[in-house]
Write a protein that binds this DNA or RNA. Sequence first.
DNA 1: GAAGAAATGTAATAATATTACATTGTATTC
DNA 2: GAATACAATGTAATATTATTACATTTCTTC
Lengths: 190, 190
Amino acid sequence: MMNMPRPTSSSPTPPHSFSAHIEHQLDKATALCTQQGARMTAQRRDVLGLILTHAHPVGAYDLLEELKTAGRRPAPPTVYRALDFLLEHGLIHRIERLSAFIPCTNLRHCSHTHEHSEACLHTAQFLICRDCKTVTEIADTTVLETLKHICKNENFVIQSTSVEVEGICAHCAAKHSATHPSKEISSQGA
Amino acid sequence: MMNMPRPTSSSPTPPHSFSAHIEHQLDKATALCTQQGARMTAQRRDVLGLILTHAHPVGAYDLLEELKTAGRRPAPPTVYRALDFLLEHGLIHRIERLSAFIPCTNLRHCSHTHEHSEACLHTAQFLICRDCKTVTEIADTTVLETLKHICKNENFVIQSTSVEVEGICAHCAAKHSATHPSKEISSQGA
DNA sequence: GAAGAAATGTAATAATATTACATTGTATTC
DNA sequence: GAATACAATGTAATATTATTACATTTCTTC
Ligand SMILES: [Zn+2]
Ligand SMILES: [Zn+2]
Ligand SMILES: [Zn+2]
Ligand SMILES: [Zn+2]
């Protein structure tokens, strides 16, 4: 036959294999999608898996490179479409300052699916360390409440928000606190 | 003779001419720079003037095109360097979601130079209308206070922040409120 | 299994931003 | 008013991020 030899008949694009830990997170994500009537395809699962394997934000083109294995040559739209899907379903976040992506922390830490879309989707705050590039997701509701208040004042219909803070994380600040002068925004009660 | 902080008198790159209103804002900006020991060159003044002429955020390459007059062919670094300068001195803001730039509202509305760098620099909130593309700068201090509080909890040294809200402005919401279904973030009074 | 919808493949291109190095302008010192 | 050092700009090339448009495949539903 002229057909290429495919390892499996069920999946035309054999998924990456990830650690058991990440596979578990991927299963949770899949459950969340099913719950929302969305399809977690092999492609999307691969992209999410790759994002989960990174300790730091990943760029779309990094993901693209990592997808290029075993004779597959995906193009940018492949990655961007998967990213769009994952963003829409609250599984990842885009860090605007970095043009890069991180998994939603709920995926990492919650064992049940609960109010994910309500509490987390589009409403988190991100602390970006300039030193070690780590991004921490904070789920403080006060910020959103304030923004809602502001928008109400302005009669502005709020649809999504980005709240990002750049600076130095606790770990890095401790590592070399004596070496560098502080460039902190003046804190008035510290 | 008085050491006036003007763009060089025999400038090899003749500055654009702007409306009296914008020239006035440019003069204020120049005064702010002088105050900070920075040089408002003709190039930087031109870029700021162009940004001020726009009612909406402008991209770097739009500015680049607009600078191409009277035999001048500036390249991207020219614009990006000017933008960096203007950002550093709090004269403009970068809207991360749009990769575009707007003048700091203080430049438009304050007649004296006061605590610009303290209150405005890097700490404002931006309301981005998806419909008419207008961006409104809000100077609510509560958001920053909350972020400081969060960062203190995390021992995170805060250096700069982005707070952006996308949605529909009052004007656009009124224009066609009956036509479109509301896609607002669910308000939790339910 | 045929029709329609959703997802993916593919090629090309658009939009945004940076690097590296040469040149020119400006301020300071002598 | 040169010499100098530094700041700013010019220039070419390239890097990075993202989208468009259209063909093909896969999945769902009937
Ligand atoms: Zn999240
Ligand atoms: Zn760090
Ligand atoms: Zn401002
Ligand atoms: Zn509007």
